[in-house]
């Protein structure tokens, strides 16, 4: 009895296969010859991209399940199912706005620090260039996917550079006085991202807003909202403080209404069709938030002249004028 118990314990501690496992060859210097020449690596014919991965909402630097408990299908170019994303509703927007408001310390960090974080983000995306492009290609085709990732990296780099260079001005009024015009962040900005360019569109709108110190509640492209998964992994690994960028997937028309009506959202950017632009304007009259839309017109996000630069930075900031009188 005692013997069996002992044997059982031994088997429990040490599985049989382990007992029969062959001994490792004595350690060799790696520099001498190819150390891996004899090792057999198990290689099941498995495409790692085929394993399901559940994308979640990104709120306050954490991956969050939706309040509704529902999800929506994401389909590829050939109508095949690529995966599912959470169906966000007004409560998720409420939570995201709360998280964004709490992260307002981002505005007080130095522009230099924000630039560093953005540079790091671009570096991290460039490291994962291929896999992000591969996943994106299911939705937009290989050519556009790799173009989006490449332009996306460049866009992050350029806003990283802009972060500490989008200065204000010193004006010279016609009396003994100077006026310092300071560019300051608006606060919390709700962004409805363009449908047709899921990754580059997101980066082109969110990055200028974040670079100057705002916090963001973004609704990604309805075409390929799965991009959220890649984006939050990017933010998580790049030292971006939680709550600076929040992502809520779902039907953008519904989420737009909640965002535009929310009194704690200071500005709304809506880059979709004309009806959405109209909706953004009419719903946001409650607290007269600043509205920036494409008026339903197409923007070529791959074109540097159209898709990046001062136009966006201006809309992401408000100007504070400080009058400084001088005399004897």
């Amino acid at each position: 009895m005692a013997a069996t118990a002992k044997a059982d314990t031994a088997a429990y501690l040490e599985p049989t296969w382990f007992k029969n496992a062959p001994a490792l060859p004595a350690a060799k210097s790696i520099s001498g010859e190819n150390a891996n020449s004899e090792r057999q690596i198990a290689n099941p014919a498995l495409d790692p991209t085929e394993i399901d991965r559940t994308v979640k909402l990104y709120i306050g630097g954490k991956q969050a399940r939706p309040d509704s408990g529902y999800s929506m299908e994401v389909r590829g170019r050939n109508r095949e199912i690529l995966g599912e994303v959470p169906l966000g509703n007004r409560k998720d927007i409420r939570n995201a706005v709360e998280a964004a408001r709490k992260a307002s310390g981002w505005a007080k960090t130095t522009a230099h620090n924000r630039a560093q974080i953005l540079f790091y983000m671009a570096e991290n995306l460039s490291q994962r260039r291929d896999e992000v492009a591969h996943r994106l290609s299911h939705a937009v085709g290989e050519a556009q996917a790799s173009a989006e990732v490449n332009s996306g990296i460049e866009r992050i780099f350029s806003y990283a550079a802009w972060a500490d260079k989008f200065d204000g001005a010193v004006h010279n009024p016609p009396f003994r006085n100077i006026a310092i015009a300071m560019n300051e962040p608006i606060g919390t900005v709700g962004i409805i991202c363009p449908q047709e360019v899921p990754l580059l569109g997101f980066l082109s709108l969110v990055l200028p807003v974040v670079a100057v110190g705002n916090t963001v509640i973004a609704v990604p492209s309805e075409t390929y909202p799965l991009v959220t998964g890649d984006l939050y992994q990017l933010f998580d690994t790049s030292d971006l403080p939680g709550g600076v960028v929040n992502i809520v997937t779902g039907y953008s028309s519904q989420l737009l209404k909640v965002l535009a009506e929310h009194d704690d959202v200071d500005a709304i950017w809506c880059f979709a069709d004309e009806a959405s632009a109209f909706a953004a304007k009419s719903f946001s009259t409650g607290n007269l938030k600043q509205v920036f839309t494409n008026e339903g017109r197409a923007i070529d996000w791959f074109d540097v002249k159209q898709g990046e630069g001062r136009w966006f930075l201006h809309h992401a900031t408000q100007v504070k004028n400080i009058w400084v009188p001088y005399g004897e």
Binding site: R94, V258, E261, H262, D263, D264, G286, N287
Partner: peptide, 10 residues
């Protein structure tokens, strides 16, 4: 009352 989310500074 309003159906819109409010800001605390209000």
């Amino acid at each position: 009352v309003t159906g819109r989310y409010s800001a605390d500074y209000r």
